[in-house]
């Protein structure tokens, strides 16, 4: 039997509902993420996956429903608040300042201060550069210098920096929104390797992707959303063809594991 702490999910979302005017974007979704698990979140456009993750990252406040972090009820009022509580989001367009170097981006908004003179904090450049260096080494990210400006990096390297940045401050959960959407095939493999590396080092990750093979390669479990509802919550198993057929069946509405529940509710 597992110890009790491990049995408590790191994130639990219960009955999350969110409307935009007349549009019911989320119609009561339950989601649990366990420690050291990679959860794939799949669905067609407008299925609600991005909205659900924006709720978890504090960008949207849900109309109904509750969020628990390690068993404790959490209130996430904005992205910064969610971040402070250990929820890190990696955005599709990286959300990096291209004019700054790698170390500056990793520590953006959380700079290490050496001396504080009233409102003016003098940064500890050396400390931040060393931390960034060892972070990149630990995650096996290949970037020659932490002083390189982000605008000089390739798309894959930028995504790696964005992911590294999300792990730098003891995040409880890392959400990746389409981390491979803008990348070349070679860069995609590197990002997927990085996801595996993070899992090996104990991270808990939710990954949104429209590329089913990405989900298949790195995820332990998969949730399919359709029209604002959860229609499937199953382990990732079997061969890729079977997996793909199964997922597509859920995505287009041919299969639905939670239909009865909704009718009953």
């Amino acid at each position: 039997m597992k110890p009790i702490e491990e049995a408590i999910p790191v994130v639990e979302m219960r009955n999350i509902k969110k409307n935009f005017g007349a549009v019911q974007a989320l119609r009561g979704i339950d989601l649990a993420l366990h420690h050291n698990e990679v959860l794939g979140l799949v669905g067609d456009n407008a299925a609600g996956k991005s909205t659900l993750m924006k709720v978890l990252s504090g960008a949207y406040i849900p109309d109904e429903g509750e969020i628990f972090l390690e068993g404790k009820k959490a209130h996430l009022s904005n992205p910064m608040d969610a971040r402070r509580q250990g929820i890190e989001m990696v955005y599709q367009d990286y959300a990096l300042a291209n004019n700054l170097d790698v170390a500056a981006n990793v520590f953006l908004g959380r700079e290490v201060v050496r001396i504080r003179l009233g409102p003016i904090g003098v940064m500890d450049h050396r400390h931040m550069e060393q931390e960034t260096k060892s972070l990149l080494n630990r995650l096996k990210i290949d970037i020659s210098s932490v002083r390189q400006k982000v605008e000089r990096l390739s798309g894959g390297q930028r995504q790696a920096v964005a992911i590294a940045r999300s792990t730098a401050f003891n995040a409880k959960v890392i959400i990746m929104d389409e981390p491979t959407a803008a990348l070349s095939v070679a860069a995609i493999d590197k990002v997927l390797d990085l996801v595996r590396e993070l899992k090996a080092q104990g991270s808990s990750i939710i990954i949104i992707s429209h590329r089913l093979e990405d989900i298949y390669q790195v995820s332990d479990r998969m949730i399919v959303l359709r029209q604002g509802r959860k229609v499937s919550d199953t382990p990732v198993e079997g061969d890729i063809h079977e997996f793909r057929e199964r997922v597509v069946a859920y995505m287009i509405g041919a299969r639905d594991d939670f239909r009865e529940k909704t009718v009953a509710g």
Partner: peptide, 19 residues
Amino acid sequence: SKTVLGRHIYAVGGNPEAA
């Protein structure tokens, strides 16, 4: 070049949304 304020000024210039 040395302070958090300065870093944030450049971050806002580079990518206001990311900042």
